[in-house]
């Protein structure tokens, strides 16, 4: 059990990183990696939402969709759950901690459209995880996303100050950097068999 959980965690954080090997959640990965502070806020918020979304979508799949025999509606209902969840979390944060709400700002609602969240929910179903595994899978995905996002933001802050050739400035060099990062993460592939 513990070994299995550790395996899932290492696998999702490093070997099958959601951003760099599954290419999910690329939009916030490119969009909010300009500043390291923003990237940290986004990473924390995404980690939180991913874990919750993974668990709740698993529960709905197992106890609503399967008994009613309507598993083909999984994608639609998962989108519904994620949107409601993000909205609820935003409401809670806004009233409980306006400061955190101001720090996270626009990134919080943006998570609704982060395909990594939907990806986690759907992969849970495909890989037939049980509840504990689903929670770990969601948390691991969020952790992996967060690590990659923050380190990528750190890289981009340094690239900003270096003499990049004119045609490569901005998005092109960022994409090249992301590609090199993805290649570096390929080194983890042999570690875990997915």
């Amino acid at each position: 059990m513990l070994e299995q959980g550790l395996l899932i965690l290492v696998s999702t954080v490093l070997a099958n990183n959601f951003v760099l090997t599954r290419f999910l959640g690329l939009c916030p990965f490119m969009g909010v990696s300009n500043k390291i502070e923003g990237a940290m806020g986004m990473a924390l918020a995404t980690m939180f939402v991913l874990t919750l979304a993974s668990v709740s979508s698993y529960l709905v799949y197992q106890y609503v969709l399967l008994p009613l025999n309507i598993t083909y509606l999984a994608t639609v209902s998962f989108i519904l759950i994620i949107a409601a969840l993000v909205q609820a979390i935003e409401l809670i944060i806004r009233s409980q901690s306006p400061l955190l709400h101001r720090v996270l700002g626009i990134y919080l609602p943006l998570i609704t459209t982060n395909c990594a969240v939907l990806g986690v929910a759907l992969l849970n179903v495909r890989q037939q995880h049980h509840l504990f595994e689903a929670a770990l899978f969601g948390f691991g995905a969020g952790l992996g996303f967060g690590i990659v996002l923050v380190s990528f933001a750190a890289l981009r802050e340094r690239i900003e100050r270096s003499p990049v050739p004119e045609p490569f400035k901005g998005a092109p060099i960022a994409l090249i950097t992301a590609g090199i990062m993805a290649m570096a993460f390929m080194g983890f592939t042999g570690m875990v068999k997915a």
Partner: peptide
């Protein structure tokens, strides 16, 4: 029928949850 009912039920439950959260945690 079960598809329509199931999905509507899910949506209603989530809506109820959101309403409850909005009431329980009024904005600043």
């Amino acid at each position: 029928l079960s598809a329509i009912l199931g999905l509507s039920l899910l949506a209603l439950t989530l809506a109820a949850l959101l309403v409850w959260v909005a009431r329980r945690f009024p904005a600043d």
